[in-house]
Design a protein around this nucleic acid. Sequence first.
RNA 1: GGGCGUGUAGAUCAGUUGGAAGAUCGCUACCUUGGCAUGGUAGAGGCCCCGAGUUCAAAUCUCGGCACGUCCA
Length: 949
Amino acid sequence: MSLPPIDLAVFHDHGFTRRQCRITNLWFWTCDKDRTTCGDTHEDEYTFIGKPLIQGFEQRGKALKDAMREAFLSFFETFEHHRIQPYPVLARWRDDIHLTIASIADFQPHVTSGQVAPPANPLTISQPCIRLTDVDAVGRSGRHLTTFEMMAHHVFNRPDEGEMYYWMEECVAYCHQMLTETFGVEAAEITYVENPWCGGGNAGPAVEVIVGGLELATLVFMNLEESEDGDIELKGDRYREMPLQIIDTGYGLERFCWAAAGTPTIYEAIYPETVEWLKTLSGFSEVASNWPDLDLDKVLGEMSRLNGIMNIEPGVDAEHLSQLFIERLSQRDVSITQEQFLAVTEPLARIYAIPDHLHALTHMIGDGLVPSNAKAGYLARMLARRILRMRDDLGIDVTLAELISHHIDVNMEGHNMKQTRDGIITIMSLEEERYGEVLRKGTNLIKQSLKSIAQDAEQLPDELLFQLNDSHGLPPDMVINMAQAIGWSQLRLRTGFSAELAERHAKMAKAAASTDQHTSYVHELPQLPKTVPLYYNDVHQRSFDASVLASIPLLEDVALESATHAIVLSESCFYPEGGGQEGDYGSLTTDGTSRQVLDTKKENGLILHLCDGPFEVGDLVHGSIDWSRRKQLMDHHTAVHIVGGAARRILGPHIYQAGSNKSSELARLDVTHYRRLTREDLDAIEVLSNEVLGQVSRIEKIVLPRHEADKKYGFDLYQGGAPKGNEIRVLRISDHDVQACGGTHHDEPGKIGSIRVVRSTAVQDGVERLHIVAGDSALSFAREQGEILREASKTFAVASEDLPKTAERFFTEWKEQRKRIEQLEAEIVRLRTTGGGDDSMNVDGVRMVVMEVQGNLKQLTSMLQELTRDPETPTVAVLGSREGGGKLMVACTESSIASKRYNAVDLLKSIIPHIKGGGGGRPTMAQGGGSDADGLDAALEEARRLVQS
RNA sequence: GGGCGUGUAGAUCAGUUGGAAGAUCGCUACCUUGGCAUGGUAGAGGCCCCGAGUUCAAAUCUCGGCACGUCCA
């Protein structure tokens, strides 16, 4: 069975009829008798360019967006939808995506799965979203954006629990009423296209709302989930109805603006100030004056109408596209050469894309993101670099910080940003600096790489381009441009290369994705009630009594040390590893047996005590935990929260926990920051952390329903990772730090004693790892440091205060003396080589020196150098030394009869077996060593024989 | 999370098959000049990132660490 037709009263009431599109074959509803297409095909041009279809909105830019958004939200408010504040663009409540890509993403996965209640029902929202998949098409297609606001009304129905708010009929009715009444759209311009939606294991009927050739909204009725024995078939997969029935709508705010403005592209409707500014700065306005005959306005007008049917998607070859455009334009009596076309469209594409990218970047950085070379931070860096490149291509002289400042002034007023303006500007300046550095290094590298390429080459090797891109951040087209500029004028980028590059990356990504795995500790977990955790009620409880519910042998490959069995109890105060806190150790005993608990883990709500032996099911056991270890873990865990809060107060609002680990020896806290931390930073964090220990007398532990926690404390709660349940355990250390955390913590910070921030290391760019010790570990750390100091001072026989000064003195003296030794060795060599007449002889005008000397390879080298330096006395020298198992060296005076007649390597190879060694070198200088110094005499004797013959 | 790349003089970088640590700029002194720009000559400046291993021999090869860069998810 497939989905039935979407046949609603609202269609009939407004005189709409159902037809099948002659191009796409999709069914659609229209009240225009002449319409034969669904509206979104390659024959449906944009009809609103120059002739707005949405009436009553004369503003442009931010004012237009604000008015449009307000009109939408208040429409739904009057129909009893609750207005929800937008979520951040960084999807920190999710671990599967970095960015908020749709309004429904706010409620995934737990609201949409039914585990967590929605914040309101029904609700309306305008959610800023970022999607980078189409980034290449932005600016070129006239309609693509990386950042947009998705206006929506959402409903979460539970028919099985008698909670049914509304479904398709009402949903479409709201949409139609809003379009025609609030926005003044003629009903004849609207088509509703039936096009089922599926994705991510869910599916349902859906309606696309098309106005003037532009898809303004999609109304999705999500009521199906993937199931092998489902009775509904959609696009090859089987589905069944699910208990939760969700209305997921998406109205493109910017598209509404565009339809209201009727501008040639969407960018002029929403970013008019920046587009004008960049046109002026880049001198684009004068481009047309190069060709007085060209009617630029007409070209652009026709182009934007064409945009609607050209279906410009990312990855389309630019050259091919331009030819297609020129062809189509000529069909419409617009004649333009390729040169003219590119001179107009290339700069325009950049002028349009820059404000869009700035908007996305401002949102991301504004939400507290730090640019990085990994994860979401990398996406921000990519956007920043795209902006900088486009700016350079346009030849504009403004900094990234100035561009962002301008954007904030024009577009961000009233938007609540977490990061400060100064913070954003600092981060942008650092990014631009870094970009400059990549360019500078890249230029050198390209010059270097080109050395091996013929000046008249037409292409560069694929491997070179791949490598320059992947390892050095130099995009292929930039490499070609640079190479052309410095003399390789014939070079072109091979058609299709960019596509191959993308494909290569996709392959790598696919290979990486398939290596995901989950470790389990036992073969099969029995169905048992969740273990009752005692550690939340009283974190100080050290022992308890419980009954054994299961005793399961551990899987071979996860067995650690001597643990053999996982014991499941009815309740436990053993804390299982989680939230970066290691599991508790201790013991379980009955009257007869006693087992060590070597680690504690959690799986499917069951606490697994990993023991060194089994129990009988039904045994009553007495459990007691290793308290000193637990106390230390609590010291470290609570300290991590305090240090995190301190770092945020000292370094800025972008400080976010990127991971943490607490063992009994030390704790590690990874935080996001845009530059390396100095010791001064660490000191300030340490001082503030210790102040908190004294100032805050109690740590609050509160359990809240999820949406209440979100509302009260915001998404910074979820720094430790996205929690799963509807109930959130909030740990609040006054206003210093508030986080959702399932770990065990002290009730009073003062119990920790003291905190030391030992050092910081870099995890990746944009993430610093703080090494922290607290409580007893802090004391033993101090003791160890003292011991290191004492040991070092003992070696120097000085007081530890004098150690740095003394070490420095020793080091400089060591350097000076090393130099002095070199000089003295040279002197020794000079003395030895001037005297040795006895060991030299003359064979046909070549001086032969064969002798045993004292010294290492380095000294022998200098001696040989001295002996064979003078071209006036051609010399072959063979030196031997007994050091280190015997050394032999042979050298000939360069470019003389000596080097013509004798080969140092051959000579060496003939004599080296006497000392049981090997060696090699160049024809004029060879060296080798052996393991039998006693053979040295024989070796030298053979050398004498060889040179005489 | 995965792939790739780079650590050599104060700076920017060469360094071939493992076999004698280099260039350019900067620095110091001297020469040229009335002085400066410039030109000439000489010199100083190196834990070749750190630690193991292989080898007669490691800046070079292998492994580990640290630091930096970059592409992708």
